[in-house]
Structures are given as structure tokens and as C-alpha cells.
């Protein structure tokens, strides 16, 4: 397996450890990652929210670079995955003639042409679930995460809209749970697994953002979760940061970090992410000597 790897700005920013963990996990599983040094920000939904052509052009660039390499794009960020898929849907969908004209004119100003038709966009979650597979992952596990209760938090953008995200069922997904169990962990049933972490509102409407994130964390904690696992670094940050000033204390790990643990990967580089919640108890359960 070989992919054009697209970490996204979060994984190169606050969530740098997600990038580290993703690379290490892929290396361990024999997934080849090729860099896209000229791939810009996906737009993060923010550019798209105000500028249609610019948003689509950003995605077109990344897709074209992957297309030139003859590879599909893999990211570990749900926002990046959805933004790129939305760009792709515009450029390949029923309105593609008009879209390619508009976006193409912008790309041409930078000396680019859209050549991304054959570049699909996928997520580490789907690569692990569909291509490595639950059995394949279980076979590669060196440290079974027994006795760990996982609350799987999917977040919005890896599931919805289901017209673009069709790998798992949007209302009854099971991929995260199956991967967690392949790592030897148990999963909890709780009320927040499909809800929103509120991250898109964090900058402008803190109260609403926190309320959404807190609801999910409280539900996970009530269900006895030792850790929340999510495929999106923004969800990770949001669910983590809403706990400040509370005693909720449920650490939140990105999927790459959690799987990494089961593959024997644990280091400050892949796991320094407990900004707020107390990761001590989890670390103790896992026999990690640092926090």
C-alpha cells in the first residue's frame, strides 16, 4: 500500500504528535507514505465557507499533485479528508464542466493544470479498517491494550454527508470500535459517539463549542471510558480542551496514537498530547513511564 500523505495543518501544528504517530504506524504496517511538499492547506472548511473558487482550487492543487504521482491521498484528519473530497466532488461531479473551467483558470495563473481525476481521498481510519483490515491489524499488535475501555468518538466530518463518506454507515458506524477491539481493548456504549465536538465554533462561539464537546465527554466518562479515541485531530483538541477546569479527566487520543500504542509505539513524540486531561491513570494502565 502506498499513498500520497497529506497531514494537514493541525497535524503540523498543535497536533504534531498525530503526524508522528501516523508515520510510525504506517511504517510498522508496511504502508508507504510519499510526501506532497507543495500541497497547501485544504481550506479546512474555513476558506470554503467564504470563497468558493479558492476553496476548490486548494483541493485541486493537492489532488493534482497526488495525481501526478499516480497515488491516492491519505490523511489522518477528518476535516482535510472532507474538504478534499468536497473539492473532488465539485471537480468530478455533475457540475464539473463549469467547475473545472472556473478552478482551471485560477490554477493556470500559478502554472498548474487540474490532473487529479484519478486521485481518490481516504483516511487512515479507512486504510486501517478496509485495507489493513481488522484481522491484519490484530496480527500486527504487539501489545494488547487489554482492560482499556475505549469510547469511540467519530466526529462529524468522517461520516457525514454520507454521499461523500460511504465507507462506514453514517448512523451505525462500527469501524472505530472494531479497530479498538482489534487492539485488544473494550469499547463502551455511550450517547455521544456520533455527535459534534464543536470545533468549528471554537473561535467564534466558545460556549456552544464547549457545550457540545463536554456533552460527549461526560457521556463517555459516565459509561466508564478510560480513553476517548477519535480519527480527527480537531476533535481530539476540542474534547481535550473542554475538560479544563473540570474533573472529567478522560484523555483523548487520535486513532494513530491509540493504534500506535498497540503496535508498541509510544514516545513523547507520538504521545505528548495530554494538555488538559490527566493522562496519568491511562499511562499507568499501559505501563508507560512518562506523561
Amino acid at each position: 500500500m502506498r499513498y500520497a500523505y497529506y497531514p494537514g495543518c493541525a497535524s503540523l501544528g498543535w497536533s504534531r504528535e498525530v503526524d508522528t504517530a501516523t508515520r510510525l504506524v504506517c511504517a510498522r504496517l508496511g504502508i508507504d507514505l510519499v510526501g506532497l511538499p507543495a500541497a497547501p492547506c485544504c481550506g479546512a472548511g474555513e476558506v470554503q465557507q467564504v470563497a468558493r473558487t479558492a476553496g476548490a482550487a486548494l483541493g485541486a492543487l493537492t489532488l493534482s499533485q497526488a495525481g501526478q504521482l499516480g497515488l491516492d491521498v491519505m490523511t489522518a484528519c477528518s476535516v482535510c479528508m472532507l474538504s478534499l473530497r468536497q473539492s473532488r466532488a465539485l471537480l468530478e461531479g455533475p457540475e464539473r464542466v463549469a467547475e473545472r473551467q472556473r478552478v482551471g483558470a485560477a490554477l493556470a495563473a500559478g502554472g498548474w493544470r487540474y490532473v487529479g481525476t484519478h486521485a481518490q481521498v481516504t483516511h487512515l481510519l479507512w486504510v486501517l479498517w478496509r485495507h489493513v483490515g481488522v484481522d491484519g491489524l490484530a496480527a500486527a499488535v504487539t501489545r494488547r491494550l487489554s482492560g482499556i475501555n475505549v469510547a469511540a468518538f467519530y466526529g462529524c466530518q468522517v461520516l457525514r454527508p454520507s454521499t461523500l463518506n460511504s465507507e462506514d454507515d453514517a448512523d451505525t458506524p462500527i469501524s472505530l470500535e472494531e479497530l479498538a477491539m482489534a487492539c485488544g481493548a473494550r469499547v463502551v456504549d455511550y450517547d455521544g459517539r456520533l455527535s459534534c465536538c464543536g470545533w468549528p465554533l471554537a473561535a467564534s462561539r466558545r460556549g456552544a463549542s464547549d457545550a457540545l464537546a463536554t456533552r460527549a465527554v461526560v457521556a463517555a466518562a459516565t459509561a466508564g471510558a478510560h480513553v476517548i479515541v477519535t480519527p480527527c485531530p480537531h476533535c481530539r483538541t476540542s474534547l481535550e480542551s473542554c475538560q479544563q477546569g473540570t474533573n472529567l479527566g478522560v484523555p483523548v487520543l487520535h486513532l494513530s496514537q491509540f493504534v500506535g500504542l498497540a503496535l508498541g509505539i509510544s514516545s513523547r513524540e507520538s504521545l505528548p498530547g495530554w494538555y488538559v486531561a490527566n493522562g496519568g491513570p491511562l499511562a499507568a494502565r499501559l505501563g508507560l513511564d512518562f506523561v
Binding site: 501544528g13 498543535w14 492547506c41 474555513e46 467564504v50 473561535a203 467564534s204
Partner: peptide
Amino acid sequence: DPGAERCGEVMASVRDTGRAHEFRLPP
């Protein structure tokens, strides 16, 4: 609106550095 402002800041950051530069953006 602060939500609109953020969109503008991300766009400016992308134009400036190619990235949504988290360390320099709100929140």
C-alpha cells in the same frame, strides 16, 4: 462576525504561508 473573521484569517494565513498556521490563528 467572529466566525467570518476566522475564515478570513485562515485565508490570509494560507495566502501567507500555504498553511492554516494554528499557532497564529484564533482560538
